[in-house]
């Protein structure tokens, strides 16, 4: 399909001028994250370029190049050289923690499908973290002295293949048991946690756009997995923002109010875990909703 993108320029520009770069904190973990990622730390120019070129988030899954070619790709920079390049230039700790949200987003929507009894539909969402994300996370986890969780992810996927409810719950708990310390370590490493969490959520929203746009062909949902991916990412981003809602409400009540209103609009794109017959929002409308969220949060710091 031909993806027509509008947008994100204004929101991204606003953010880049107010929130980025997310300066690495003095804590050793942050240093480790940055070192491990071995990426140039030039997020502001990269994002300004996005704004000026009115590109969609180049680091998100389902970039126009991929969507046009119909090629499959991973989240967070895989799928096209341009996307990978932009993703590599993302601030390292932000990229790392965004990818953690993508893992959680996959698990979230996969769990939703399992609760609906749709084990086969859920399986891709338990395979994607291993296939598309973990390789990027592994060196950072090691440098942060966090426990790896590749085996746990694979084991979890196996329980879904086996459609084994009891084993699934135990394996999911094991994975979450590895993810929770990541959150704790990041919080300890970041002095200004709330703005960092908000920006991570924004990156996660952007990734959801890529998935959403790729899920639609000819005005219909052609790829249910990508639809579900995008739903999982949005729901996870919402969770992340909810985790800092107290501070956000206290410091930026107006922004928080706008965020909730725009998020409610955005979420109408995913009325259920299975795609509707026709999109409630087309890709450009989703992009627009995300840009409004960006604008709402533009002054959060």
């Amino acid at each position: 399909m031909k993806t027509r993108k509008l947008w994100l320029g204004l929101g991204a520009a606003a953010l880049s001028s107010t929130m980025t770069p997310v300066a690495p904190q003095a804590a050793s973990s942050a240093t480790a994250i940055d070192a491990a990622a071995q990426a140039s730390r030039c997020p502001a120019p990269a994002r300004m370029q996005l704004a000026e070129n009115t590109q969609p988030p180049a680091h998100s899954h389902g970039t126009p190049e991929k969507a046009a070619s119909g090629a499959e790709g991973g989240e967070g920079g895989e799928g096209s050289p341009a996307a990978a390049d932009a993703d590599a230039r993302l601030e390292p700790s932000l990229r790392f923690y965004r990818d953690i949200q993508l893992v959680r987003g996959h698990l979230l929507v996969g769990d939703e499908l399992i609760k609906a009894g749709r084990w086969a539909d859920a399986l891709p969402h338990f395979l994607h973290p291993v296939e598309e994300l973990y390789d990027k996370l592994a060196p950072v986890l090691k440098d942060m002295k966090l426990k790896p969780f590749l085996a746990q992810l694979k084991s979890l996927a196996q329980t879904v293949k086996a459609k084994n409810q009891g084993a699934y719950e135990a394996a999911l708990t094991a994975v979450e048991g590895r993810l929770d310390p990541v959150d704790a370590s990041m919080k300890a490493a970041k002095k200004d946690w709330m703005p960092f969490a908000v920006e991570t959520a924004l990156e996660t929203f952007r990734s959801s756009y890529g998935e959403y746009s790729e899920s639609i062909e000819g005005g219909k949902f052609a790829k249910a997995v990508e639809y579900q991916d995008s739903r999982g990412f949005v729901w996870q981003a919402e969770r992340l923002i909810a985790s800092v809602a107290g501070e956000l409400d206290a410091k930026h009540p107006e922004a928080a109010q706008k965020l909730r209103a725009e998020l409610a609009v955005l979420k109408t794109a995913w009325p259920a875990v299975l795609p509707p017959a026709a999109p409630v929002l087309d890709a450009s409308q989703v992009a627009g909703a995300i840009s409004k969220i960006e604008l709402a949060l533009g002054n959060v710091k």
Partner: peptide
């Protein structure tokens, strides 16, 4: 003893 679960059931105690 499920082959996909390395010939276990992945549960603490099977019902």
């Amino acid at each position: 003893h499920q082959a996909q679960l390395a010939f276990t059931d992945g549960q603490a105690l099977h019902a």
